[in-house]
């Protein structure tokens, strides 16, 4: 047996022994909740085993997860869109709700999209559906982007600057926004005053990237703490003051 195979078998053995003890000592209840905790612990440890190297346990958990997540997405499509917005309104049509008949149009367009899977004779129909989604998405996004991302961001940037700490912060934000925009303005050569502004823009970007990086690490560590807390408290049922 290779070293990896020995580690693999030893891991499974230790995991089995721990669970036999946990179920035997009633730390894990012999019901669906207890079995769920056992399964969740197995999946968690299998996925963490990737930190050693790619291995069958990781691939097992990863592929199971992909299948479950795909079915979950499909389920959400059905229960949050197709069922309430298509099936329910169209199946209960009466004289009061004849306006719902219009829903046949997007349903047809959706079915057109699925012709992408068929032969070339029909697959061109999917272009109509794609044109609808892309065109409408573009149209709806323009006024919203202008209102929410452009105007709503410009307004707080251009406030009166007063000789207070708040005013100083507003000045720093104004300088930051302008210099960052100068950095991304490639139509002018970045030399002289434009070069200086561009350099300051890079510093602001570096501060932002560093802050975002630190923030992301903290968010991921919070998840890690959550998973370790689950393994120690929910699975191994250890009374720790930390979690």
């Amino acid at each position: 047996m290779s070293r990896d195979q020995i580690i693999f078998v030893a891991f499974l053995f230790v995991f089995a022994v721990i669970n036999i003890y946990l179920f035997g000592s009633d730390s894990l209840s012999a019901d669906w909740a207890g079995f769920g905790t056992f399964l969740a612990a197995g999946i968690t440890l299998s996925l963490y085993s990737f930190l050693y190297k790619d291995n069958p346990l990781f691939k097992f958990a990863e592929n199971l997860y992909v299948g479950v997540a795909a079915a979950y997405t499909l389920t959400q499509v059905w229960y949050t869109v197709l069922f309430p917005d298509v099936v329910e309104p169209l199946s209960g049509l009466d004289s009061q709700s004849m306006s719902n008949l219009w829903l046949i149009v997007p349903t047809l367009l959706g079915l057109f999209m699925l012709t992408q899977l068929s032969s070339a004779t029909f697959s061109w129909l999917s272009r109509i559906a794609f044109a609808f989604v892309v065109g409408l998405g573009a149209g709806l996004s323009i006024p919203r982007t202008i209102a929410a991302n452009l105007l709503a961001q410009l307004e707080p940037t251009m406030q009166p600057i007063t000789p207070t700490w708040e005013g100083l912060n507003l000045l720093i934000i104004l300088v930051g926004v302008v210099t960052v925009l100068v950095y991304f303005f490639y139509s002018v050569e970045h030399t002289g005053p434009v070069g200086v502004a561009s350099k300051i823009g890079i510093w602001f970007l570096m501060i932002s990237f560093g802050a975002s990086f630190g923030y992301t690490i903290m968010a991921r560590l919070s998840l890690l703490i959550g998973r370790v807390g689950f393994l120690l408290e929910d699975w191994l049922v250890l009374e720790l003051p930390l979690f």
């Binding site: 934000i173 930051g176 926004v177 602001f204 970007l205 501060i207 932002s208």
Partner: peptide, 10 residues
């Protein structure tokens, strides 16, 4: 402040 300024520019 500085992070917001850069994010707003982007």
């Amino acid at each position: 402040v500085p992070n917001l300024a850069a994010k707003r520019g982007i």
